[in-house]
Amino acid sequence: MSGPSLLWIDWRLAGRSTVRDLLFRFVLVSAASFAFLVLLLSGGSARFLASRYAITAVLRTTVSPGEGEGLAGKVAALPPVRTAVYKDPETAWREFLLAYPGLDSLRSSGGNPLPGYIEVRLRPERLTGADVERVTTALRSVSHVEKVLAGEARISRLLLVKRYAAAIAWGVFGAFAAVCLVVLVLQEKGRATALAADFAFLEERGVPAGRMAASRSAAGALAALPLAAAGVLLSGAALRYLLLRYPSLEQLVGPPGDLLLPRTMLAVAGFALCFALLAAAASLLGFRAARACR
């Protein structure tokens, strides 16, 4: 008996149903990878919350625009910070009027009453209590900063919402993965049952059942890898199209460019590997279940 010949035993004995199963799996893995990519890039609700949350460093009135710009550049270099934008007093005044129209009279009494400020936004994955603390401490230690507004009173609730939202999102994804495993096991059990007579024929002729199970499992994993890769490519392309077509989605999911970040690629490779392992496990479980029914 040579090993490799048993590897594609299902293809040799039941090619049509194997192809049918693989097509269904492709739909399944494409849907799962789309959900995975959305979750990965959005971090549950982290990206949305990070786009809404900002730390404001109110500068002293004596700070010149040049100094403000320089300070914003230094703040932007802090690891948790995604953007740090300096707004001069004039911009601050315009924003104030947009928010509270009809208060122009405040200026007539003695020039612009508002100082410049730096608006600091954190990276979604760094939106944690410790990182907020780190940035605010760094800003407070600067002599040009008059006051730091970080919403400390509400930040703990915000982080709690973020944690729960992430747990729920990944929990739903985990449940979906479990359903996928059940579907895969049922598929494998069905095929193994249909091929039971053939497996018995081979066993009678000296092909060990364990070897058949291991070969089928290995073939399942090998077939799952390119399938997962194709599914990820398809869902990645679909997600990119949606992000370009509806830019408002970027607030939730992130920019299309994030799809090609090394960490995204690494996570996607891990996803494909997990799917292959899942397929291998499903093959083994299906084979065992079919034999138990005999």
Binding site: S2, A197, R205
Partner: peptide, 23 residues
């Protein structure tokens, strides 16, 4: 011998080839 899988004669040969190691 029973044939629950609805095989053709060629399927039987294919199965035999697999049992022989597919060489």
């Amino acid at each position: 011998f029973s044939d629950p899988a609805g095989h053709t004669v060629e399927d039987l040969f294919r199965l035999s080839a697999v049992a022989g190691g597919g060489r």
